[in-house]
Design a protein around this nucleic acid. Structure first.
Lengths: 212, 212, 212, 212
DNA sequence: CATGAATGAGTTTTCATTCAT
DNA sequence: TATGAATGAAAACTCATTCAT
């Protein structure tokens, strides 16, 4: 679970609705006009509140984006947990790979425009948040690799996990950028599976290539 | 070769020197203070010219970054050409993979701070330029895949090329962000090779995983 | 007694308590955070009421400070009355001077931080209220000067009263600003007495200085 | 001489003119509309420049007021120096007193409206600058008291200097507030002289009053 | 009466760009 | 052509005050 502490507490029900309205307003502006054009005035207008109200709940503009990212990361964390569960309960390597892939695809297929704009914001901040998230993801993958080690080629687990997560998210992110619909195609899903599986497979031919 | 049409009169010698000074100034500010703090006045000062002069050679601030990106992409295009050459002359798949990888690593190891800041700028623009570049890269890879098709598993070439390029650049870019030195480690090089080779290898186990 | 007309319905008991709470809240915020940081919301919070309630009893923020000043001036008025009494009943000039001085010192030694912040507020308003107060003080002093005229040097009474009051309050106010504790020192008390007494004394040497 | 370092250096002649225009604009707004209504936009407009220009020369609004105060204090410092000179060269106590008084009166008679508004600003800042200035003034007075000690009543010099400066500035400041013209009247000048002279005179009757 | 969320005019400040010298 | 002072639109943020509940 991520922080969310920056949002003020006016615990009343009305408050929650307003906060939601602001975040939804920001999301809409991000989607329709992009990060660069997403100012506090515009956000407030779309949210149907005044700037003053906006600042009653968020200390500054950035904190709105941060909250949006928090929520995005919460979704991803949930996906991660689903992967962990799916992996823990079975010896089926294929199931693990499918779970990992499917969760990732699902997460990226939801509201891709918004995600792209938030990604731009993250770029601004040096990707600090997303980087941390991906590190946790690496932890999950590393655990899975350890568990199934017997059926995989010999691996430097942390490095392999890093490569896997980076490759997978690299592919998914770029495809989402080019055309989010692609992520729904079975062929794409299959190829990503091939990428992951081929990398860890005992039949991987690196040994034959004289790299180094 | 990329555009560069925005820059006025590269004919006079004095002019060329000034343009270079401005670009170098911008690069320095980007490296030392980051994109967010990189204003025209600061650039001009570091370049040792006045803002007025800066606007004599560049129509606006963005065009400076665009030119810097042009040059970055020129370097990458050169790397791409090197890969094409290396691949065309040989039947050695390993050599092709190594060439691809090495060029990519080399490109990302040069001036990583500057590249990160330019990447932030590109994020702002929706990665239009980088995306176009990666598409060209996909063309090169697709050609190589066609050429060596006989020794690879059956592939949907365009899709496979896309996955390969995205995976590779995804890994390299993220590692460069985490720690650029990583890119110089032989182990990393080997694992990237494994990622690429495993994906296209006829021994890839996707068929066994019942993905769809 | 000063106005206080701005405060609504001091009739109900509950009301009076609330008004007191608000004034006490304001005083606390003034003391601890200063005039600049003393907003209505903060005042209300410290008073344990809502902003709405605050505005039920005070028409605007200024009126709170005005009331606080009213009370300060009431204290000073009381001090003034004490001086008047002390002066009326006796022919002792020394007693009059001592009374004047002691009341003034006592008033300024009480809650100096609050007084300083209220003084800043008064500065904002052009010192209107304090000026009026000092004028009344001048009246008292003028009366005393008339009464004891026989034992003093020849004086333009209103002007002399003005000079006396201005000098005395000028000294006390500044000392309070520099260090309120100073006001408690006997040496200081003695010097202020010397200032006042020397000014009106028949032995005053102005005549010898050829000032005009 | 006071700092003035906050003002940027664009050494050209044009610059100086602009800085002067801004300061004059600020002075005018202060005089005609008061500190409270003196915003950057209004200052710039009166100065005949744009806000941007204003911020080219002053880092923020406060720095404009600070510079105005610097200049005011420079005038006062000059007055102080004149007093020092006048006092050093003579054994005439009357001359010293007259010089002190006259300089003070002259300084306060120049542009009193502006001074009052700057005084309000200083109130905001806790009178830090003015306080420091008055301390220096106390030093000057203390020196004079030491020099003429033989002809004065026994004094605790630092305390006496403090009382004298506080009394004098208190009187002058308040009179300037009530009605600046008063400061020009000979009677007033005479009474201030009486205040100062009576305080230090060997004939001062404090000893007779049983204070303490 | 009490509440506190909502308001929005107003303020300061920035910075890409222009243009007179 | 070079200069750098001037521009001013735009953005973020504040806070006294109101009013629906």
């Amino acid at each position: 679970m991520t922080s969310r502490s920056k949002v003020r507490k006016p615990s009343q029900e009305r408050s929650r609705v307003t906060v939601e309205a602001i975040l939804e307003g920001a999301s809409q502006v991000l989607r329709s006009e992009g990060l660069a054009a997403c100012g506090t005035t515009k956000i407030a207008k779309r949210a149907g509140v005044s700037v003053g109200t906006l600042y009653q709940y968020f200390p500054n503009k950035e904190s709105i984006f941060e909250e949006l990212i928090d929520r995005l990361l919460d979704q991803r964390a949930a996906a991660r947990s689903a992967v962990v569960e799916a992996t823990e309960d079975t010896e089926d390597l294929g199931a693990a790979v499918r779970s990992l892939m499917d969760q990732l695809l699902a997460v990226h297929m939801a509201d891709p425009e918004l995600q792209h704009e938030l990604h731009k914001y993250e770029a601004t901040r040096g990707f600090t948040r997303l980087e941390k998230y991906e590190q946790q993801m690496q932890g999950v993958v590393a655990a899975a690799l350890e568990k199934h080690a017997a059926r995989l080629r010999p691996l430097n687990t942390p490095l392999a996990a890093r490569v896997l997560v980076h490759a997978m998210t690299g592919v998914v992110e770029r495809m989402s950028r080019e055309n989010p619909r692609m992520l729904g195609e079975p062929a794409v899903r299959r190829e990503i599976a091939a990428l992951l599986a081929g990398y860890v497979s005992p039949t991987n031919p690196v040994a034959l290539l004289d790299v180094e």
